[in-house]
Simulated assay, not measured.
Amino acid sequence: MKKLLLIGTNTVHTYNYLELVKDYFDAVLVITNEKREGVDIPVEIVEFNLTLRNLIRTPKRIRKIIAEFKPTIIHIHQANSVAFFSNLALGKYPKIPCVLTTWGSDILLIPSQSFLLKQMVKYNLRKANAITSDSVFMADEIKRIQPLSRSILIANFGIGFTPPKQVEKEKIIYSNRLHKPLYRIDAIIEAYKKMKQHDSLQDWKLIIAAVGEETDKLKKIVGTEGIDGIEFVGWVDAKTNAQWYARSSFWVSIPMSDATSISLLEAMACGCIPVVSDLPANREWIEDTKNGSVVKDVTSDFLTDATQLDFKDAAGINALLIEEHGTKAANKAKFIALYDKLLN
């Protein structure tokens, strides 16, 4: 009997992954930090915050859950405190194979925040029987932080929907990343302002989805500077998000740091031409001026530059890339093969 214990925070990414692999197992249990509405999978709640109290209580609670559920595979998402508390609990169960899926912030941000946090990440990487990463760049960074002799599986969770039937593309630029400093939505607004200074580009619109700590600030910038053609549509559901992809000619995302973004894959699948920051993970998918635009200077007129691309060629290249590497089916096969290897 194959039994999966999935350990991760209450985020859409954790449950998207669960949907990807759950039918491979006879039973599944999730350990997370809070319940999620509309999820019918059995869930156990623990605390993952790094406190002295949790240092004792959380591993003890996880050990108890393992003893009762008796999983054949444990899969931990994120090499942060989630993996740290789980690994402290797993000391009593060395024979249960454990997979660690790293997320961008675990590897690209946390180790640089303090010496102790870096040691925590290194400990988590050492303890895993298998590690997965959504990009070659992040896999290389993992091995730089913690040298490993074993290979790292490169896989993502696949696009989260079937692309809508192709509709006629409109002169829309779509942004749907969170309104946090990391994602530099203000730089996108500034680039759009520069774009609107060209007479031939007056009819383009910028649609800004999502929300965050900078939403009010961003709206104030648009209002104060009187920039026409920008619409804030707030947090959108999956169906609405897919519809915006389908209508938009460009999708723009210029974070300071990122691993492979599922939003990037979704945009590519829907025929949007990606405009992305110059990051290693992005360059694994986008070749500048060929199937998208790689922004080396976020203060430049980069949206105007992107309009010079050959839309038809770029969309065709992206469709092939998604079919081979970005679908749920392609990535599910990778994870199942890893489970088979560990169980055998």
Rank of each mutant, 00 (worst) to 15 (best):
A89P: 11
H198V: 12
K60S: 12
I207Q: 10
D134N: 14
R177H: 01
A83H: 01
I142R: 11
L309G: 10
S133W: 00
E170L: 08
R53M: 07
I142W: 02
K312G: 04
N54M: 00
C272Y: 01
L109H: 09
V99R: 04
R63K: 15
N156K: 00
K341V: 03
P280V: 10
A281P: 14
A238S: 15
Y245F: 15
T14D: 07
I207P: 12
E284F: 03
S86D: 00
H179Y: 00
K169H: 09
N54V: 00
P94F: 00
K95Y: 09
E37T: 13
A267W: 00
V275L: 03
L206D: 04
K290P: 10
N87W: 00
F335P: 06
F25D: 05
F85R: 02
F335Y: 03
V30M: 08
S81A: 01
I7P: 04
R150Y: 03
A67Y: 01
D228S: 14
E214M: 13
D199V: 07
F25L: 00
D301F: 00
I286F: 02
K95W: 01
L108T: 13
T162M: 03
M138E: 04
I96H: 08
I286M: 09
R150W: 00
R61E: 15
L338G: 09
L6M: 04
A333F: 01
D23P: 09
R61I: 07
I173Y: 01
A139Q: 13
W204P: 13
Q78D: 09
S105V: 12
R53H: 10
N54Q: 06
G91C: 02
P94W: 01
P97Q: 03
G8N: 02
M195S: 04
I142Y: 04
K122P: 10
K127G: 09
W251P: 13
G316M: 10
S277V: 10
R126T: 10
D106H: 09
V121K: 05
K165R: 08
I336V: 15
L108E: 05
I56S: 13
E170S: 10
R63D: 05
K219D: 12
D140T: 11
Q166A: 14
T215W: 03
K143P: 07
R283K: 15
Y93W: 06
K35S: 11
D26N: 14
G212D: 14
K290G: 04
M268R: 06
N241S: 14
G38K: 11
W251V: 14
E19D: 15
I273G: 12
T299K: 12
T14A: 08
G104A: 15
K118F: 05
A155I: 02
